[in-house]
């Protein structure tokens, strides 16, 4: 626990993330290059869906990351509300635009996949609608943060909204089992193992790992930017107070 507290120190985080970030970014670039080489030149077309299966290699990792980042935000929200740790608030704030971007990628690529396979870009079924709700939750979190000027009040309000929105995560995951939907059921992360052939599963896992490392590198960079923004805000306030004092002294 002591080491976790030390890691959660903003100055230590800045040092550690500066060392790790280039490695994460480099590994992400390498894995994405290998993964997409396999997708475009090695992996076979699907016997039913043909070449449109290529969309799966961005759609599925984007969906996983949209869910993963919301879950990370929920853990950070607990850190904000229970321990009032400033780095938890920073982590939560930095994660929202990244999760929103992956949710948007998931929705758009799903639409482009749905039109040729289902005959429609969109249908209000449980999986698609709950994913849209997740995207709107991300936008709500970002908007609420911007609507409140005082950072600690904004952090607590966003943490509460994030935890309330958590109810949507199991709904997304199990929507294909609980309701009759156009969307196919889970085929990778399921009890009993994956139903995808290895020739498609490996490229999918490699691109998913590449996207995950890319998202974590972006999260670390966004957290660095947020820590710097808070330092700038604090120093600006100090400077304004000092200038006020000096002008008062000059007037006397």
């Amino acid at each position: 626990m002591a080491s976790l507290t030390e890691l959660a120190n903003p100055a230590r985080f800045m040092r550690l993330s500066s060392v790790l970030l280039p490695w994460f970014a480099g590994a992400a670039a390498l894995l994405l290059a290998i993964g997409f080489y396999l997708v475009w030149f090695v992996a076979p077309a699907d016997y039913q869906q043909g070449e449109t299966i290529k969309i799966m290699y961005i759609h599925v990792p984007a969906a996983w990351l949209a869910l993963m980042f919301y879950s990370m935000m929920a853990l950070s929200a607990l850190g904000v509300l229970v321990w009032r740790h400033p780095l938890a608030d920073v982590a939560q704030q930095a994660a929202a635009p990244i999760g929103a971007s992956f949710a948007l990628v998931c929705l758009l690529t799903g639409s482009f996949w749905g039109k040729p396979m289902w005959g429609t870009y969109w249908v209000w079924d449980a999986r698609l609608t709950s994913m849209l709700v997740l995207f709107l939750l991300y936008l709500g979190v970002i908007a609420l943060r911007r609507a409140i000027d005082e950072p600690s009040r904004a952090g607590r309000a966003v943490a509460i909204l994030t935890l309330v929105g958590c109810v949507n995560i199991p709904i997304i995951k199990f929507s294909v089992d609980w309701w009759s939907t156009l969307h196919q059921p889970a085929s990778v992360l399921r009890l009993g193992g994956s139903t995808i052939h290895a020739s498609m599963l490996w490229p999918l896992l490699i691109t998913a790992l590449g996207f995950t490392l890319l998202a974590l590198a972006l999260h670390a960079a966004a957290m660095q930017a947020e820590i710097l923004r808070r330092r700038v805000r604090t120093l600006t306030i100090f400077e304004a107070e000092r200038l006020d004092r000096l002008s008062l002294q000059a007037a006397q």
């Binding site: 070449e51 969309i55 961005i58 984007a62 758009l108 482009f112 039109k115 040729p116």
Partner: peptide, 9 residues
């Protein structure tokens, strides 16, 4: 559709 999905991402 495939290229549009990749372009969007």
């Amino acid at each position: 559709f495939i290229l549009a999905a990749y372009l969007a991402a």
